Measured scan of single mutants.
Amino acid sequence: MQGVVKVNSALNMRSGPGSNYGVIGTLRNNDKVEIIKEVDGAYEIRFNGKVGYASKSYITIVN
């Protein structure tokens, strides 16, 4: 499943599905991501070869 990031500035990509996990990357508006699955209000995603988590509130599914 594919998604597009929709933010005003940037969205943190984290090592786990919550803000208490470390930041492993930054997503920008209109970045395209692969959605692997939904976990606790976040999506597990793949972006630029990395797998991490981002809030589903800022990712629009575009299948």
Rank of each mutant, 00 (worst) to 15 (best):
M1Y: 11
M1Q: 11
M1E: 06
M1T: 11
Q2L: 14
Q2G: 07
Q2P: 09
Q2W: 15
G3L: 02
G3N: 01
G3T: 01
V5K: 01
V5W: 00
K6I: 11
K6V: 11
K6W: 04
K6M: 09
V7T: 15
V7C: 15
V7I: 11
N8E: 13
S9N: 13
S9D: 13
S9E: 13
S9V: 13
S9A: 11
A10T: 14
A10Q: 14
M13R: 02
M13P: 02
M13T: 02
M13I: 15
R14E: 03
R14W: 15
R14H: 14
G16H: 08
P17N: 06
P17I: 08
P17Y: 05
P17C: 07
G18R: 04
G18K: 07
S19V: 12
S19E: 15
S19D: 15
S19A: 13
S19G: 11
N20G: 13
G22A: 15
G22P: 15
V23S: 08
V23K: 07
I24P: 01
I24W: 01
I24C: 05
T26H: 10
T26W: 09
L27K: 01
L27N: 00
R28T: 09
R28D: 06
N29L: 08
N29Y: 09
N29A: 08
N29T: 07
N30C: 12
N30L: 09
N30E: 09
D31S: 06
K32F: 12
V33E: 00
V33M: 02
V33N: 00
E34C: 13
E34G: 04
E34F: 11
E34Q: 10
I35Q: 00
I35T: 01
I35D: 00
I35R: 00
K37R: 15
K37Y: 05
E38K: 03
V39Q: 06
V39E: 06
D40V: 06
D40E: 12
D40A: 10
D40H: 09
D40T: 07
G41M: 08
G41I: 04
G41F: 08
A42W: 15
A42M: 15
Y43Q: 00
Y43E: 00
Y43P: 00
Y43H: 00
Y43M: 03
E44Y: 12
E44P: 00
E44I: 11
E44F: 12
E44A: 06
I45N: 00
I45G: 00
F47N: 02
F47R: 03
N48S: 07
G49M: 04
G49K: 04
G49D: 09
K50M: 12
V51P: 04
V51S: 08
V51E: 07
G52R: 01
G52L: 03
G52Q: 02
G52W: 02
Y53D: 02
Y53S: 02
A54F: 03
A54G: 03
K56A: 10
S57I: 14
S57R: 14
S57M: 14
S57F: 13
Y58L: 09
Y58D: 11
I59H: 00
I59A: 00
T60E: 15
T60V: 15
T60F: 14
T60P: 03
T60C: 14
I61D: 03
I61A: 06
V62W: 06
V62P: 07
V62H: 07
N63I: 12
N63E: 13
N63S: 13
N63K: 12
